[in-house]
Amino acid sequence: MEITKKELPLARSMCWHCQSDIGGEYFCNQCVKVQPLSKDMDYFTCFGLPRKLNIDTARLETKFYELSRVFHPDFFEGKSEMERAVSLANSAILNQAYRTLKDPLQRVEYLLRLEAGAAKDIPGKAPADLFEAILEMQEHLEAFHAATAENDAKTLARAGELLRGARKTLEAKRAALENRLAELFQIWDKLVEKPPHDQTQTATKERTLKEMRDLLSERSYVMNMLQNLNEVLA
């Protein structure tokens, strides 16, 4: 992966220092001052990537290291206050972008924000097919807590057994959700490759985004339940 100098959008087209045209380069041709990156730039653009969900993370890392070598504050010690501020802000954007794209879940959440204007935190929602199992699990939990309070070893053991069963159900659900999410990643990436302005494609895109959002919402709920269970059973 090569860094072409004009990859990342800059905040302005003129150098903040000498007002000469910077032609999209990170450093002004005239006065060699570092230029601020555009705050509106999306993280995919930051690494010169299309908005796909399957990313070659090794290449992402290489690119992140390359850009870190360009903008990190270590290389601006002793420079003017403004240059140091630009380096700091650019590095902060870069670090945030890398962190977001490195993790598949953060990546898809971010894509949902970009494409469908989703909220920063997607609220959890109980999966409909698990309603009954979840209700039962609440009962077992209550029994477990009551038995702990009363020091009733026998009931405690049985409730614990039932809760471990519930944990298996939840873990299976989590795996199923993540498998489907992986399928949707493929579907999305194929859609991105197709030429734009296709009516049916737009509809498919919207449907895929919505399904991903619902999956994430259910996954968030399942993860919460699992965390609670693990704490109780630990």
């Binding site: 290291y65 990190h72 010690e77």
Partner: peptide, 13 residues
């Protein structure tokens, strides 16, 4: 030394 512009190839993140 990195901050003084000496060592160029090492960077701590």
């Amino acid at each position: 030394d990195i901050l003084s512009g000496g060592i160029q190839d090492m960077l701590l993140l």
